[in-house]
Nucleic acid binder design. Structure first.
Lengths: 420, 420
DNA sequence: ATGATTTTGTCTATTATTATACATAATAGC
DNA sequence: GCTATTATGTATAATAATAGACAAAATCAT
């Protein structure tokens, strides 16, 4: 039965956020799955779902799923519902994209960039690039669901700020969310690039695993770790810093961080490039190293193998500590085929107890475009379609950007009061 | 308004499981806190709470909390509601206890034990010891809330089994929950001792931290890790095995695991005892080492300091990887005062980037009795009073041990069907 | 085609929960 | 003692959600 007035219709929609979240996250793609997962009665599910379909937020896909009886109709979020804007800030370029809510790439652009530009100018340029992408793709992208930024530095995720000294000079403890939110009226998420690469691999390829350790071996070395389906970021967003774990050895190399004998100084792209230059080759960064490996230059292959064993040494420690079920090795140097991987495997199987390696998979990340950028899109979508995010989203859709404080019940008010 | 029949009263109780859980876990200790945290209306909270109070499951504490106005009355679980049985299986003894639901020790016993006895005999002896404790403490302990077992071996927590070869020969992949559940009609939880020590320190002393790394330095060395308030156990329960991380060095010592240069072989109680014996002292285990340290024997102090630096080397790696906010050092060797700790701190601050150590606390665990045993009690209580556990508990109380499947609604039935 | 099977929608009466308002209670600070 | 403040209980009417039953729809295996 239809509600008495427009406000009632809105209420029906905002109550439907749990249903919406289940569909949008893929936790329940059919009506009967919704019944199971939501815990609500059939009548309630039908009513809420109808509200979502009437508002054109949810639609039925063409395909159905076989069930043994009548096939289940598959429910999907209307892709027109909105879009996501993401940026990957690199040390020498900005990579921007507009994504659909799958998330999938719709349009992208690359800007030349110097990390020295500093936060304000950078964020302004990103905002400009975003507007251009929005204009290019016409006006049929729906509302802006959220913004995601990938940074090559430790990030305090909750506060959305770079923490500590890093490549991003001048960004330490500078507010990023505020300025971006001034440009666009949507939630802004900021995270470290390695974390986002980890997130993307996990959500796209290895969603079934409980935990995953991602090791990025590029010009630098870093790791991301998802425990129990949740990104682990550490106390200050500084987790995963395996590149600066030190090993004793004779004549330890000097690291760019100023310490002696770091993993990076032994095995990162810049370190291998350094060693190749010492041997008379031309190599500045990880890409150059891989180019030489692809040409099957023996010295390059040898150095990559050696890097694998160094990284394997740290990885073995990590495996003993965390006992992960899956280790994914990505980054530019991972494109050099199995040379890197075999070194890692060698050390892990040599050093760890059998129990920890019994069912451990160590694999190369599938080569793909800008994983950090895709990860930023995934981060925004995960947040947007989470139960809380879905509630916010439906509120935004129902009431524009008006705060949802009005007309709350006593208990809801209490909740708001305390939360504030 | 009272329901029409007895069954209705039971329904009121089982519906109250969310309220019960909030009180029992300490998430909400007053009526107004319940209003906030539950999201329910005042009327509903009052009604459900009254049902719990009428059933004598919840009571009001004598003390009140100041609020600025009328003080809030503090609600607590009736300690008579039930008890917990826990056992810590050591290599040379069994330590059993009956605990109240705080949890707090009510009665305990220690049995001589050889780990070679094997699972069946051991579990039977534990069951016997439990019955004796129940008899000793009279019949006013309420129902048995659950059983917790602490084992000195890697445990697959979900399956409740020892995994892999370990000190517990003959236990690998042997069902523990089944046999115990044959003796007692209550949920059985099994975990590794270091994990339980970690849990206890976290829940009792550092509940406010998001994450905690616990390092146990006793006869052996191990670590436990809580991320985001949740125990991290790894893919097969083998996480925290930092004792067998290897370091290269000249003349690496042989470890009892068969590898060379493990942390344990350099810094564990048995290794220090070995070195002390080589120097002519009498020392067999960690206790002996601490005894010598307490007598201020210079050689013992020197070796303990050295052990601290070795452990600090691993700890530095862990800090780089995880960026924990708090590291607690416990175990027998931690009772030797700051000698151990200073070595750990030295290496961590030397090797880690400032960002990771900026607000890092490294402290000694407060000396206390059998922490693993207390942790086992905490584990049972945490599970018992969790939302799901509370629902089960109230069902058990209302209907004896009858399965709660009868009289379910359509949606509840669906849930059960799929879950089965 | 037929029957078994599963999905999906809807009706009716009943039950659970909320909103709202009012009243009382218990403290601290003045 | 008075007042501000917060805690707590309850009555009433209205709303939301459920249970339980039925029926139609859409497939598969035979």
């Amino acid at each position: 039965m239809p509600p008495r007035d427009g406000a009632g219709e809105n209420a029906a929609l905002t109550n439907a956020s749990d249903i919406f979240s289940l569909i949008a996250t893929g936790a329940a793609v059919s009506r009967s799955a919704l019944l199971d997962r939501s815990g609500l009665s059939r009548v309630t599910v039908t009513q809420r779902l109808n509200a979502l379909i009437a508002a054109d937020l949810i639609g039925e896909a063409a395909r159905t799923l076989p069930s043994g009886g009548r096939p289940t109709r598959v429910l999907t979020v209307n892709p027109q519902i909105g879009h996501v804007l993401v940026a990957n800030i690199g040390e020498s370029h900005l990579h921007l994209a507009l994504m659909s809510p799958e998330p999938a790439m719709v349009a992208q652009s690359t800007l030349r960039y110097e990390v020295a530009e500093g936060p304000t100018a950078t964020l302004d340029r990103i905002a400009g690039g975003f507007r251009q992408l929005q204009a290019e793709t016409g006006g049929d992208n729906g509302i802006l669901l959220g913004i995601g930024l990938s940074l090559p530095a430790p990030v305090d995720y909750k506060r959305g700020r770079v923490v500590g000294p890093s490549v991003m000079r001048g960004w330490d403890n500078v507010d990023i969310i505020g300025p971006m939110a001034n440009h666009f009226d949507a939630p802004v998420y900021v995270d470290n690039d390695v974390n986002l690469m980890t997130l993307y691999e996990y959500r796209r390829h290895f969603q079934l695993a409980d935990d995953i350790l991602y090791i990025k071996v590029g010009t630098g070395i870093g790791a991301g770790f998802i425990a129990d389906g949740k990104m682990f970021r550490g106390a200050h967003g500084a987790s995963g810093d395996i590149g600066h774990i030190q090993f004793d050895s004779d004549d330890p190399p000097l690291c760019r961080c100023g310490k002696l004998g770091c993993v990076e100084a032994r095995a990162a792209g810049w370190a291998i490039a350094r060693d190749l230059r010492a041997l008379g080759f031309k190599a500045e960064n990880a890409r150059d190293v891989i180019a030489l490996v692809d040409e099957q230059v023996p010295e390059a292959v040898m150095l990559l193998r050696k890097a694998g064993r160094v990284i394997g040494e740290v990885t073995a420690d990590v495996v003993s500590l965390l006992n992960p079920g899956l280790i994914v090795v990505g980054g530019t140097l991972a494109r050099g085929g199995d040379f890197l991987l075999s070194g890692i495997r060698e050390l892990v199987y040599q050093r760890c107890l059998p129990l920890a390696t019994r069912e451990l998979n160590i694999i190369l990340a599938p080569p793909q475009g800008d994983i950090a950028l895709l990860g930023a899109g995934q981060l925004v979508i995960d947040n947007t379609f989470s139960p809380a995010g879905s509630a916010d989203l439906l509120n935004r859709i129902v009431a524009g950007a008006a705060p949802p404080t009005t007309g709350r019940s006593e208990s809801a008010k209490r909740r708001m009061d305390r939360a504030g």
